[in-house]
Design a protein around this nucleic acid. Structure first.
Lengths: 106, 106
DNA sequence: ACCAAATTTCGAAAAATATGGAAATAGCGT
DNA sequence: ACGCTATTTCCATATTTTTCGAAATTTGGT
């Protein structure tokens, strides 16, 4: 994981609307959710939603798959884990300490 | 953890300079690092560094403690864990699946 | 009280982000 | 081909963020 990519993903999640959107997809699990279904839950204009969704897809946090006219969106769990790992993986590398999370994930 | 707080923390980490800065502190461990030491590693103007640092402190990701004229900065590990937990904790809540990370941290 | 070092605040300009209405596009059923 | 629904792109605007020089502030030593 490169710093730039991690930062882009964190920034993508760092907007309340997008974070809410992402969490909806995380909750939805492997089945995913159609863009329209997400819109129903968020109650924001479709163009705004599309922008936010694009950001999550572009940064690799969400994947999309067409099913007829609807687009199914899914949280990219491996991507999420890589990001979390990145945050923790060098925990205390320069000092001895009880790792908070990092090694537990290794 | 409230959505707004999590988003603010993620946004704080979502800037390459701040992420780098945060990781430097994460690596430093409990001993922390003086602002000046961090500046030496990042090579950015002190005023810019101060702004970024303030953002991390304001969002609760970093703590500071005075030691004479220098300010020691430390990554707030429990804070980091809370944030990571927030990202994962409702993983697949609406669907059965093998949790990627969430339950492993519980 | 004064000086030096460390860090923050002020102020200001350039760039990026967030938002949403309106128009365009994509895919399917008929 | 047409119409319908789902979704994106275009465009514009308001707001926020990023950046950093210069000035101010804080703290401790003498």
């Amino acid at each position: 994981m490169k710093l730039e990519k991690a930062a882009a993903q964190l920034e993508a999640l760092g907007n309340p609307t997008r974070l809410q959107l992402y969490r909806i997809l995380v909750r939805a699990g492997d089945g995913g959710l159609a863009v329209g279904s997400v819109q129903g839950k968020l109650d924001i204009p479709s163009s705004t939603l599309s922008h936010h969704l694009k950001r999550l897809v572009d940064t690799g946090l969400v994947t999309q798959e067409r099913q007829a006219t609807t687009l199914i969106c899914r949280a990219n769990y491996p991507g999420m884990n890589a990001l979390i790992g990145y945050l923790a993986d060098e925990c205390c590398a320069d000092a001895a300490c009880a790792p908070a999370v990092g090694k537990a994930l290794a």
